[in-house]
Amino acid sequence: MGYHLNFNLIWRHFDKLWGGLVLSLELALVSIAIGIAIGLTLAVIHVSGGRIVRALIGAYVEFIRNVPLILLVYLVFYGLPTAVDISYDATTSFVATLSLYAGAYLVEVFRSGLDAVPRGLIDAGKAIGLTPWQRLVHVRLPTMLRITLPALSNTFISLFKDTSVASVIAVPELTYGAQWINFNTFRIAEVYLVVTSMYLATGYAILLALRALERRFVIGR
């Protein structure tokens, strides 16, 4: 009994945690960028595409959303290379997985965003003689982006938290840093106290920054 908290060893290895946090943020940023590209493309295709295309997009979305992320991570990293002749490192594999994962959630976000663009705006676009493509680029997408901004923020914060799963394939992000210190110093409780605080503080900072950004976007309309 009488466990005494001792953070000295944590501070000595803090570079592992700091580097991990930076990598977590990078993983989330790259994944949401690719995820936005996937989501936007598929949403536009879904709105204008035929029945088969829609069903295929739907299958992708439903599969990703209904399978645990950790399983997807294993599937891509350990499973795929046994069947297809490709090889990649753990970080690349995880970014690919998290991007596909983000894409599936963002298709839905963008699709409902496109639906939420007021009819009157589209009619106004028609009235001034815009082609369907012009209406999409100049009316529907810009309006839709403002509508979906809060959902995009939430998705980014979720992805930042989800990067912790990368630790299971030894990507050296924040949770992996915690495990490394855990195995090498056995200051188990301390390291998880520090790491939990780091996730909370970073997540909160991202939230504040994104909310400020949303406000500016809405006002500057």
């Binding site: 938290k161 989800d162 990067t163 912790s164 799963v165 630790s167 949770t175 915690a178 998880y192 790491v195 939990t196 996730y199 909370l200 997540g203 909160y204």
Partner: peptide
């Protein structure tokens, strides 16, 4: 809600 489930 701010903590990853895995970390929790």
């Amino acid at each position: 809600r701010g903590i990853p489930i895995l970390v929790l």
